[in-house]
Structures are given as structure tokens and as C-alpha cells.
Design a protein around this nucleic acid. Sequence first.
DNA 1: TATAACCTTACGGGAAACCATAATTACAAA
DNA 2: TTTGTAATTATGGTTTCCCGTAAGGTTATA
Lengths: 221, 221
Amino acid sequence: MFNKVLVSDDLGSINQGVLTVLESMRAKTVQQVQYCDDAYLKIKKGYLDQTPYDLLITDLSFVKDYREQNFRSGEELVIALKQEYPELKIIIYSVEDRLQKVRLLMNDHKANAYVCKGRRGLIELGKAIEAVHNEDIFVSPQVAAALSKKTSLEIDDFDINLLKLLSNGLSQDEISVSLKNNNISPSSLSSIEKKLNKLRIQFKANNAIHLVAIVKDLGLI
Amino acid sequence: MFNKVLVSDDLGSINQGVLTVLESMRAKTVQQVQYCDDAYLKIKKGYLDQTPYDLLITDLSFVKDYREQNFRSGEELVIALKQEYPELKIIIYSVEDRLQKVRLLMNDHKANAYVCKGRRGLIELGKAIEAVHNEDIFVSPQVAAALSKKTSLEIDDFDINLLKLLSNGLSQDEISVSLKNNNISPSSLSSIEKKLNKLRIQFKANNAIHLVAIVKDLGLI
DNA sequence: TATAACCTTACGGGAAACCATAATTACAAA
DNA sequence: TTTGTAATTATGGTTTCCCGTAAGGTTATA
């Protein structure tokens, strides 16, 4: 497991949970900071002292206070660190769940994992640490769509609407009526069948139940 | 406040936070162990010496190491202790947030409080200690649904398993086969239909799709 | 032992979903 | 206008789900 880990987050209490996960995974030494600049300096010093950190877990947003900072966000920190030390593993741990942001950090800034804070955040953080340790990448399911462009890009508002109606307990017949009432086209039973069939294939679902379960896990509805 | 408290958790650092909370609440003597077996022996010894502990705060998961253990989880420890010493107060302090687990420990095993580790874990732990000291129970807000919902009280592991299989895309026929293969009874198609019908009524679901969507939202699966 | 209450399983009819194919419509390019 | 393509709708057949009824089995209690 990782030898030297740095946790960067401006809220002390959140750190506590992250530290818990790290210790349960037997990380050797774990340190934490509450400012991006501190994170940068600690990592730089680690390299100079020949005892580099091999993992950074950082938040994205840091509230400003009296201390003047060079790095105003986790994103700037990631950019600078990945430029100087490309081999340093970085896991983003943030409430931010916009796909655009995730895509930017993973694809352009080469972060190694992106975990959304939330009810399952710590569990996913564990998986992320595991994955990154195995030279793999990880992103939370709810924002996984950000990387697999093909699937998510083909899904439009109509599909989402369809899935929502379906998950609300309407039969395909009732969905047809509902769409007709709202003057949404296409609305025929046959078209609805076709769309749902396409979605089932896209998400590798066995049936409509499975489909709804999958898209719910992905946070699409 | 409590006189004699035992904290059981395999991660030293978490203990530190718990001890801090206990101190701030003026608990007299606080001791800690990192193995379930040690916790059991200490509590047993306390009773034999006429100086019994009056509160146990324990984790659920303990990673295995070289030491052979009789109790492999906090759950087993709780069951044993509550059987022998029903009056001993027990607070669960765990990352586990599945409602099913919470329900089992609170309702069946008669734990006195359930606190989820996490960002507000220590704060809630304080509240839990307070509540238990007043002969009350406590569960973290995020899992409070486990106790409050009348409907979910009647839902057992079989039902959860059924819903999981259903959400994994298995047809009722396939579920029947799966249960037979695992020697789980009942397993007939007819019984599965009946159980699912009952669940649909309980959760006011129109059909199986709706049912899965609802229980997913509730966090039951 | 008898009885009642409940659980499990079996069966059948109707509804909805699933699947393939064909007919119709809409629309852009020739 | 004609033609070709794609989207939408329609149709029929098969499977699965939904729902009632009923037969056999188990358990608790008198």
C-alpha cells in the first residue's frame, strides 16, 4: 500500500473520515493540510528530502480566509503538481459533480481518480485508492459518464424523461398516453419500445427493471 | 455521566477521537482495546470484579491479523454481550450505513445507539452517549430511516436479497433457479411472485420497475 | 390428536413486456 | 417531382409478469 500520503482539505472534520479510510487500508504515514499552498510546499519538500509523497488526496474548493494563497483552488494545485511531478498520484475528493469538471481534471490534468463526496463517498474513496495503487484510474459511478463519452452523449432529454416515467411506475402504454397529452413526439407504444430497447442495449441491461436500476446507480435519474 | 467505558476499534487513531469526546463529556475511566476478544474478556472481568463497565463503544469491522480471534466482528461481540449482560449499554460506531444492518443491530440485537463514522461522526457520537445515558436510543440521521419507517420493519434479509436479484436483471424464473442453487427456501416461482406482490403493496409500487426504483431511492439496496 | 393459522407450491387466465418485421410518414437530396 | 433514407407507427407472436384460486405442508395451540 502507499507509503506516504498527503490529505488536503479545508474542513478538518472531513479529513477525519479520509484518514479513517487510509488507516484501514494500512497506509504507512498520512499527513494532512488545510491549505493548497501547504500541500504544494510539503510535496516539494518531500522530493527535496528524498522522501517523496506517493499519493495526494485533495479537495477542489478551499474557502478563502486571512491567509494569502498562491493556489486558490485544488485544480490549480493539481495542474502545478502534475507538471512538476507527473508520477505523483492524485485523487480528487470533491462535492463537485459536473461532468465537464471531471472530464477536465481526468483527461487534461491527468488526475488519477475522481471521487464525489456524498453518502457513499468514503466507500468509493477506498476503491479509488485501491485502483490508483494498481496503476489504474477511478471515477465515481455518478460521474463515470464523463469519461465514456460515447454512451452518455447519445442520451438526450427524451431518453431521460422516458426513464423517469418508467421508474415512476408507468406502463409503456401509460407513458405513451402521457407523451401524447404533453404533445411530445414520438409517442407511440412502438416508438417507446424501440427507445427502451436501444437503452437496454446501451447499458447492457437484461430488462426494464435492470435498466432502471443501472441508470439510478449512475445518478442519471 | 458514565463511570467506566470501553472503546473497541482496530484503528488506533479513531479511538483517539472517541476518547476526546468521552473526556469532554466527563466520563470517569475510559479504556480501549483493538480486538473483539479483548473487549469481551475485559467486560467479563469487570463483572467478576464487581466493577462492571457501563458503556461499550465498538466498531463493527475488524481486519484480521496474526492473532486468532473468537469474535470476528463487532456484530458477534454485541450478540454475545447483550445475551449475557442485557443491561450493558452498547453504542455501535461504524462506517457501515446500510439500513438493513442498522435495523438488525438496533431491533434484533438491542444495541442502544448506532453512529455512522463520517464527517459528523464525533458530534453524533456525543449525542449518542448523551441519549444512551438518559436511557434513550440514538441513530445517526442518515440511517434513521431504518427505524422510523413502519413499512421497512417487516422487511427481512430474504426480501432484500430478492430485490437485489431483481435489480440485477434476473427474471422471476431465473431468481427461482438462483435460490434453488443456493438452497434458499422458499424458491418456487409462485412464492417469489407472492413476496414481490407483498413488497409492491407495502411500497405502493405499480409494478416491479417502480418497486426497484423506490427501494433504491430509500437506500435499501 | 385435532384444529386453525400460516407458509409453500402449483396452476390458469389475462395483461404487459419483449422481439421481429412490415407499413407508413417525414424530410432532404437529386 | 422523384427518390432514398431515416424516423415513426402498426401488427403479430412469444415470453414474462401479474393476480386469483387452490392444494399440500408445517407449526402452534388447545
